[in-house]
């Protein structure tokens, strides 16, 4: 744009000046925008920064009445060493990882299957099924906690990974998201396979699923994040220290460490790290995934 203005012939200089003026205004505006955005970014990063600084202090410095960003006795990784020696955080991270992975895998499989049927197969009772699934989106999980707990006791599943995993695989909104995506895949793509006499299952696996990678990724991301961070249900259904997920385990740490602020912050940061790392690597996909599933499902 700048070059365009510069190469304009002389008679237009007046117009060029006029065009330049609002542009300078935009730069001033942009500086203001940057300043506000930066202020917000700093405010949003301070809790992370303060937790990090605290975690690298000695317990004495962390609990010192004088608040300091640079601790008097220097930085130390003692808190992290202690947290690792306790061994709980790695164990809980593992528990969170495999339960969340199982929840994500089961959710994807069962939701994609039913969504395909709702999108493509003309079966009796389909409308009713669709209505029931959509209606169930409004059921808030807290309403289920009392009866579900009682049910898990009856099934002898309390304090097992099953109790954590099984009730979390039902995401009616995600069924709806997948169905809407399948609806948009042109039927012609399946027709060749139908002509060959391929079964529904083969069409689903070989034609539909490969075309649906973006939405499957989006749903997987959404389900994984909510499973990884879920607190209420795992908190209710597990009690045994060896089976706790990270969010629930951290809650017990708070009371165990009491006023050991550096260890509290080290644990919190270690718990936060996995998803933050994943986000740094898959930022584009995660942002897209959240944006597509966030509104579409409800």
């Amino acid at each position: 744009m700048a070059t365009q203005t510069l190469t304009r012939p002389a008679p237009h200089t007046a117009g060029a000046a006029a065009a330049r003026k609002p542009r300078r205004k935009i730069t001033a505006g942009k500086a203001a925008v940057t300043a506000v955005a930066a202020l917000l970014a700093v405010l949003w990063l301070v809790p992370f920064a303060w937790a990090t600084v605290t975690a690298f202090k000695s317990e004495t410095d962390a609990a010192a009445p004088k608040v300091s960003w640079i601790p008097p006795s220097g930085f130390t990784a003692d808190a992290f060493v202690k947290v690792f020696q306790d061994g709980n955080i790695p164990l809980w991270t593992w528990n969170s990882l495999y339960t969340s992975a199982a929840i994500t895998a089961i959710t994807l499989v069962i939701s994609a299957l039913v969504a395909y049927a709702l999108s493509r197969i003309d079966f009796r009772g389909k409308k009713v099924l669709m209505t029931v699934i959509i209606a169930s989106i409004i059921i808030p999980p807290p309403v289920l906690m009392i009866p579900l707990f009682y049910q898990m006791v009856a099934l002898h599943m309390i304090d097992t990974a099953w109790a954590v995993i099984l009730p979390q695989v039902i995401h009616p909104a995600m069924v709806f998201v997948l169905k809407k995506f399948f609806d948009q895949i042109p039927r012609e793509l399946e027709e060749a396979a139908v002509m060959d006499g391929a079964s529904r299952m083969r069409i689903f696996i070989q034609v539909i699923l490969p075309l649906s990678r973006p939405i499957l990724a989006a749903v997987a991301i959404f389900v994984f994040i909510s499973a990884w961070n879920n607190f209420l249900w795992p908190f209710i259904s597990t009690n045994d220290g060896s089976i706790l997920t990270l969010p629930v385990g951290l809650q017990t740490i708070k009371s165990a460490y009491g006023i050991q602020y550096a260890q509290n912050m080290a644990s919190a940061l270690l718990a936060a790290l996995p998803l933050i790392l994943v986000f740094l690597f898959f930022q584009r996909q995660i942002i897209k995934g959240v944006a597509t599933t966030g509104l579409a499902g409800t």
């Binding site: 069962i110 049927a117 009392i146």
Partner: peptide, 26 residues
């Protein structure tokens, strides 16, 4: 009808046991 409900079955099983049943039982 058969394939349709067959595809829906796995989801439906979880849905009935861990959502519909507890909401009614509650």
């Amino acid at each position: 009808n058969l394939t349709g409900w067959g595809f829906a079955a796995p989801f439906l099983a979880f849905f009935l046991v861990f959502l519909v049943w507890p909401i009614l039982y509650g």
